[in-house]
Design a protein around this nucleic acid. Structure first.
Lengths: 269, 269
DNA sequence: GCCGTGCCAAATGTGCACATTTCTTTATTT
DNA sequence: AAATAAAGAAATGTGCACATTTGGCACGGC
């Protein structure tokens, strides 16, 4: 019973140095969601292949997957870029989130227990602490996590995935239509939702949630144009043996940084 | 070089002869949603490439896209197959649909007008007609279309896309866990939802919708094993002019007792 | 001086060939 | 005779090379 292990199947693309598809996918997706890749940034295949030290085809596959998920904009023969959400997109995403959360609250009343309420309270405390520290990055993250908590409490993978999709897109929007100073979600409004849940008052919970999203949406304002060049190597943090320093993409329109991105044509013409 | 010279009319002639990626994608997706491709069917790249008369790489790209959308199950080094939903998947999809529709109804009350009610009434009449004709195929289709109408009335592309995703998965489930005789959605229950909407009674609409989904879910029962062979050429309808016979995939017995592949087209390579 | 046209470089899309993995079949041993 | 392992076949995954398209740039005409 000798197992034929004598083949020495040297893993060409093993987990040694070159990253696997999933790792590359997650790296790019995270960069988009964290706002490191700003809207309008062009993702060119060859530089990315060099950065991740994989072949171009690997990058291509990941880019196409992201494009199919509408997280990248794929223009035939012109490559992939981070989409610039329009104001209608913003409205659509927030409306979708609002509608979804209304349904979630209806169902949540049925599965609500003290343990969940305790967890939500703990989360609110975290949010308040971050807000008091003026820790904006964590505030934004925790604000999204609150709504994620609500959905995850239902234990439905499809609903959770849908909300995650919405949140990932709103992250990009935050980086584009950035509110001036305030945090994205007011902690008190989150607290009001939990209060209504504790009172098992569905109608009030839905109302509070609805008002909350309308506030958030109203806070978003058109701010800055982010079509400048990006240092991809720095974003993806491959600084260990980054061969030639920063790999920069082409600077397409050097002087297009308007004070206000008035949703001008995405193509300079 | 003048670019207006006559080029070889191989490509860029629109979608004339070789099907474009989108066409192949839609063809396969439609086959899945209509239940022509049953759960467990293995989608082998080379036969598909011959059927659609495109290169294998084209098929591969489409298959990967479908896999990223969770509409196909991609097993590494083993190819793609139509996923067999588990009973938990069924529960998850119907619960997601139920939760989403609750939120939709909350919002729908605000945008409700007579024109929409009229359209819904017309749709109900269509459904009843199909049910009376015992036209099961159309009944199933119209049942899904009813819920799509509700979401589409909100005019939110994200919500509509999410529901379409859910419906596409429940279509596969219907083909697997097929109810014995009845139609999937009772038309009367749809009518009750419209009645509640007409009365602007949100709570009742949500209740009726919820009960409706629970009924539908309860009706689904485990029935048959659908891993039999599939005639892909017939499904995709590419056999009229040139293909003399059916290109069959491996014929696999339901109990995995594999006979030799009965390929009617010899592998000339 | 401005605009249209034609060429060049770069980036993307596609086909092909090969490597790798898995499944099937067959033969050999206990 | 049954079980197991080795060999062979088939299907998938990947890298490479080439074709095609696009955008920029320069030159010349109006």
């Amino acid at each position: 019973m000798r197992m034929t292990e004598a083949r020495t199947p040297r893993r060409r693309t093993g987990k040694a140095d070159p990253e696997t598809d999933e790792a590359i996918y997650r790296a790019i997706l995270r960069a988009i969601m964290e706002g490191k890749l700003k809207a309008g940034t062009k993702l060119v295949e060859n530089p990315l292949a060099r950065i991740f030290k994989v072949s171009r085809e690997r990058i291509r596959k990941v880019l196409h997957r992201l494009g199919a998920e509408r997280r990248l904009e794929m223009i035939p023969n012109r490559g992939a870029r981070v989409p610039r959400p329009t104001l209608d997109d913003v409205r659509s995403v927030y409306e979708a989130h609002r509608v979804l959360e209304a349904g979630v609250l209806v169902q949540l009343i049925r599965v609500l227990d003290d343990k969940l309420l305790t967890r939500l309270d703990a989360h609110l405390a975290e949010e308040r602490a971050a807000a008091n520290r003026a820790d904006r990055a964590n505030s934004v993250r925790l604000s999204g996590a609150f709504h994620l908590h609500l959905v995850d409490a239902l234990g439905n993978a499809d609903l959770s995935r849908f909300l995650r999709d919405l949140l990932s897109r709103s992250s990009v929007m935050v980086s584009v239509y950035e509110p001036a100073t305030q945090s994205i979600c007011a902690v008190d409004e989150h607290g009001a939702i939990v209060d209504a849940l504790r009172a098992r008052d569905v109608a009030r919970a839905i109302d509070v949630s609805r008002e909350h999203f309308l506030h958030v949406e109203a806070r978003l304002r058109l701010e800055k144009d982010a079509s400048a060049s990006e240092d991809l190597a720095a974003i993806f943090g491959h600084g260990s043996d980054r061969q030639s320093g920063a790999v920069r993409l082409h600077r397409k329109s050097p002087d297009r940084r308007g004070t206000r991105a008035s949703l001008q044509h995405p193509e300079s013409r």
